[in-house]
Design a protein around this nucleic acid. Sequence first.
DNA 1: CGAGCGCTTGATTGAGTTCAAAAATCGTGG
DNA 2: CCACGATTTTTGAACTCAATCAAGCGCTCG
Lengths: 192, 192
Amino acid sequence: MGSILDDLSTDNPILKELIASLKDKITLKTIPKGTILQMKGEMASKVFYVKKGCLRSYTIDNKGKEHVFLFAPEGWTIGDMESHMLNAPSQLFIDTLENCEIEVYETEFFNNLIAHQPSMGLQGVFKLFKRISVLQKRVIMLMSTSAQERYEDFLETYPNIVQRVPQKMVASYLGITPEALSKIRGEMARTK
Amino acid sequence: MGSILDDLSTDNPILKELIASLKDKITLKTIPKGTILQMKGEMASKVFYVKKGCLRSYTIDNKGKEHVFLFAPEGWTIGDMESHMLNAPSQLFIDTLENCEIEVYETEFFNNLIAHQPSMGLQGVFKLFKRISVLQKRVIMLMSTSAQERYEDFLETYPNIVQRVPQKMVASYLGITPEALSKIRGEMARTK
DNA sequence: CGAGCGCTTGATTGAGTTCAAAAATCGTGG
DNA sequence: CCACGATTTTTGAACTCAATCAAGCGCTCG
């Protein structure tokens, strides 16, 4: 049974104690489908670890259009940690796409951790690098590949998400319209 | 006078000594314009801190087209740290766009540092978050804005780069063709 | 000085958008 | 469990932004 705490695992007894003392800044919550957990513009951004269900983060542009930034099924961490670290208002909405069971990490959890232990263990750093490389790949694909190629890559990268989230959100993640994705799927079904 | 070492600054005397002992894994180099420092597919990826000049990282897609991933003028750090941490072959080429003065950090520098001090200071973690938020913004802009909007944002984000790098590389960074950028510039000059 | 590269400009093409409407699916209350 | 309304997905036609192809100009540097 996973948790962000796994990333902070340590032999250091002082750190162990510190983390134990911050356990009350973590809440296990059961949340129904369709709940908005964070709004764009909010300052105190929480971090969510998904134990069951699926969340997404997204923006809304000045034409009122949604753009999905990330899907977070079981085992994923989602949140605007960037904005938290940089002390800027969040750029992202976060909501639940299914009934979910999640660990909610309050802002104070990380604040306290950082104040008392101004360093980050390998596991956590490793996760940051991993997220960077996910984003790097996405930027390159958005610049250099067709919508169909991006959809095929999406199917490989997130094998079981397609059945769980509305198609229009997948389209939004790929940077295309729902109509375009529908046509790509039709074409792919016909060709094979 | 900057350096990656600034990000590792610490009171810890043991760590200080460790870093001092690794100084020979850092080389200050003067490199002429147009030198390729890293090839896609290489395993041992170095990290470069730019003291003077400008580097870029880029990929070449299966149609032979270049896609600029990042420009790194003075004060920036560039490298495929992702691939280094994840122990995967580099996805990126890196070369110099001007005559440069750079600090080259060998793979062993970070390996040793991590082996003896399996944690990362706040400054370094902060930089990782900053890079994540840069990439986050770029993904969202690629999905939701026109080529002209992206160019205007580019001019704000990198105020002085435009004069220093070839226009076709800016186009590549924006995810469009040189012809398209030329037309956008023409249009913008006419309109104002 | 000439060859090649980079930038511009124009004509044509194409992938994906927009708009509209029909078909399928989902959720909810009776 | 079914029926109805709402939302999602599909399909089609017209359009648009940017890509491609092609030609011409101006530098630079070899």
